[in-house]
Design a protein around this nucleic acid. Structure first.
Length: 671
DNA sequence: CAGTGAGCGAGCTTCCGCTTGACTT
């Protein structure tokens, strides 16, 4: 054996072995092989007494990290080491991103490589790409490794630095971190906005309009009276009061009824017609984040389940790698997608030149999009897959092929109507070309689909029916697991390998849970978020990661020193904030009920007039009513309201956690 | 004198990101 090639994923290794053939041995690292010690028992005895042993970073001494090989990686590392000793040279073919560069460097250290190693990078797994990569190796990029180490150290300092403040202020085993705390804060802001939301009324008046010549009737909405707009949701603040600067008209019930009768009696005339062609491009091929969103919507599959199923498809050679932030297709995939579309819907269903998709933001693009594997896509019914795997494969297949199809096209029409001083409007559209929606469509492609008749200005139309509904302004909607991931991704927080995991952490800590498929924040989550927002405002700021990424880019470009950056962040910043943080429980005041929710003796409690009662975390915060508060304060059990089918038997328990904290009532506490 | 129980103190919890199986719910 001459050359040892080390990749991150064993499934990837197998294919590359095929392409490289004899003379090469391809093995997998299985991700990272060394890390900071997770707990004290991982710290080697000679360092155990050091003051920095708990952090695993000698902050006084240039932020020197202590790396160990975790127990479950030892066997693999030993095997790689002996293979490396027999090899003439070692190609470090880990992923072409910051983490991959760091894994390569850790391999150099852990395997004791001297100077017989080179870095090999590729972005797609085809025979050509691999053979080219083997002959175009480069040296290790130590500045990029330094950026990754900075990221790792910063995350450790945030997480292990701030979490103890939560133990001292609220309860044991709680956690904080750059990613999870930003996510929790986003959820908590939304939850509080819902709790503080005061619904306000507005009238929505609609009319059914009947065109003269035997056409289908269509719907129109009243938008103005004597040119003055009607009050709608936009005119109210979150306090339920009309905004001071609104010029809109609020109707009384009497007036609304009069308008209904007026329209019915009088009919409408067409006062304007606007018609314009529209076209909608197909969505880009899947990244991890968009796959999770689509699977959630179309298949009702949560992010974790989606990733488990995708992993199976990947290992079975059905799809490309499922942890990616790039929507780009390789040339072979682009051709395959076009060929499928042309075969299914004819050559006119694909545009003359292939579509290209590029990632935006801080994507690292080490892989291509998630798509059917190979240079010829296997049709879903030919895969032999069943159930979840089939459903997810088909979703990926359709989305990939659709991305290379022509636009959805049609004409959008807005009719302006008048009934005396009452102004109405109706919009609709006519599809002239289904385009990619023949293969892949979601609800957003189906808006305003009513066809409108071909009428011209001045035409008089009957209004056989009209009605007025009193509506209430809706509270801001909750996040689903998938929409939270979308929000995090667009803020640059988290990575494809961690999106699903972020959600699991929030659930396992008891910070969030699901009601009717939506994420809500528990009382515990609200307290943690409140404490962090007060004592560690930068940690709950979504923009923090963006700033960090900019600094890491500077370190990777050699424009900033690692130690300088970490000194500014820790020694001159967070370390002092931690030292100055108050160790007292935060409080969420519910002034409308005259109670306060806080923590006492490591329990979440509700306080009223000096009396404190433990609070069950199953009670959804925004489901509280005065009666419920009464019931809680009198010590009677309260069931959680808005979920009719609460699953009593299911216990989402932390994986690595031996025993959940018993002093805090976590959601699984039941009873 | 032996068994019990209150009280006290020590030790532990925790991060993000990269990968799969090994688990015990």
């Amino acid at each position: 054996m001459k050359t040892l090639v080390i990749v991150e994923s064993p499934a990837k290794g197998k294919k590359i072995q095929d392409y490289l053939g004899e003379g090469y041995k391809v093995k997998a690292s299985f991700g990272h092989i060394r890390d900071l010690p997770a707990k004290k028992e991982e710290v080697p005895a000679k360092y155990a007494a050091e003051p920095w042993a708990r952090l695993g970073i000698d902050v006084q001494n240039g932020f020197q990290p202590l790396y160990v090989v975790p127990a479950d990686k030892k066997k693999n590392v030993a095997e790689l080491r002996s293979l490396a000793q027999e090899a003439d040279r070692v190609l470090l073919a880990t992923d072409g991103d910051r983490e991959g560069e760091a894994i390569a460097w850790h391999l150099v250290k852990a395997l004791g490589l001297k100077d017989n190693f080179e870095r090999m990078v590729f972005h797609e797994i085809t025979r050509e790409a691999i053979q080219k990569a083997v002959t175009n190796t480069r040296p290790l990029d130590y500045a990029l490794v330094g950026a990754q180490e900075s990221r790792r150290i910063l995350d450790r300092l945030c997480g292990y630095g701030v979490s103890p403040a939560l133990w001292q202020s609220i309860g044991p085993s709680l956690s904080a971190g750059r990613v999870q705390s930003a996510a929790l804060a986003s959820l908590a802001r939304r939850e509080l906005a819902r709790m503080n939301h005061v619904p306000a009324d507005y009238w929505r008046i609609t009319a059914q309009i009947s065109p003269n010549e035997g056409c289908e009737p269509f719907n129109a909405v009243v938008v103005s009276i004597k040119g003055q707009a009607l009050v709608g949701p936009k005119d109210y603040g979150s306090d339920g009061q009309l905004k001071a600067d609104t010029t809109s008209l609020m109707l009384t019930q009497e007036q609304a009824k009069q308008i209904v009768d007026f329209i019915k009696g009088r009919g409408v005339t067409v006062s304007g017609v606007e018609t314009a062609p529209f076209s909608t491009k197909p969505p880009a091929p899947f990244t991890t984040s968009t796959l999770q969103q689509a699977a959630s919507k179309a298949l009702k599959m949560g992010p974790k389940k989606t990733m488990d199923v995708a992993q199976k498809l990947y290992e079975g050679g059905k799809i490309t790698y499922m942890r990616t932030d790039s929507p780009a297709l390789s040339d072979e995939a682009t051709q395959a997608a076009r060929a499928v579309a042309a075969a299914l819907f004819g050559p006119a269903s694909v545009p003359a030149s292939p579509r290209q998709f590029k990632a935006k933001g801080n994507a690292q693009e080490a892989h291509e999009a998630i798509r059917p594997a190979g240079k010829n896509f296997v049709a879903p019914d030919q895969t032999g897959l069943v159930e979840d795997e089939l459903a997810l494969y088909e979703l990926i297949y359709r989305r990939t092929v659709a991305s290379q199809m022509i636009d959805l096209q049609g004409n959008k029409t807005v009719l302006h109507l008048k009934s005396g001083a009452v102004g109405l409007q109706s919009s609709g559209r006519v599809i002239t070309e289904l385009g990619f929606t023949r293969l892949y469509a979601d609800d957003s492609d189906k808006k305003d689909e009513q066809p409108l008749p071909n009428v011209s200005e001045g035409a008089a139309l009957a209004a056989p029916d009209a009605k007025a509904e009193l509506r209430k302004t809706p509270a801001p909607g909750r996040f689903t697991e998938a929409t939270l991931i979308k929000a995090l991704e667009s803020a640059g927080v988290g990575r494809p390998a961690t999106y699903a995991n972020i959600i699991e952490v929030l659930k396992n800590r008891g910070y969030t849970a699901l009601v009717e498929g939506k994420m809500y924040v528990t009382w515990l989550g609200l307290l943690v978020a409140a404490y962090l927002a007060e004592q560690f405002p930068s940690l709950v700021d979504l923009a923090f990661t963006v700033k960090m990424e900019e600094d890491l880019d500077r370190i990777a470009a050699g424009q900033m020193k690692r130690e300088e950056y970490l000194t500014a962040f820790w020694t001159e910043g967070l370390e002092q904030t931690i030292a100055g943080a108050k160790h007292e429980a935060p409080a969420v005041a519910l002034s409308q009920f005259g109670v306060v929710v806080t923590a006492r003796h490591e329990q979440v409690v509700m306080l009223k007039d000096g009396k404190s009662v433990p609070l069950n975390l199953d009670i959804v915060p925004d489901s509280l009513t005065a009666e419920k508060v009464e019931q809680i304060m009198s010590g009677r059990p309260v069931s959680r309201a808005s979920s009719p089918k609460s699953k009593g038997g299911k216990k989402p328990k932390a994986k690595g956690r031996k025993k959940p904290p018993t002093t805090l009532e976590l959601p699984e506490g039941g009873v």
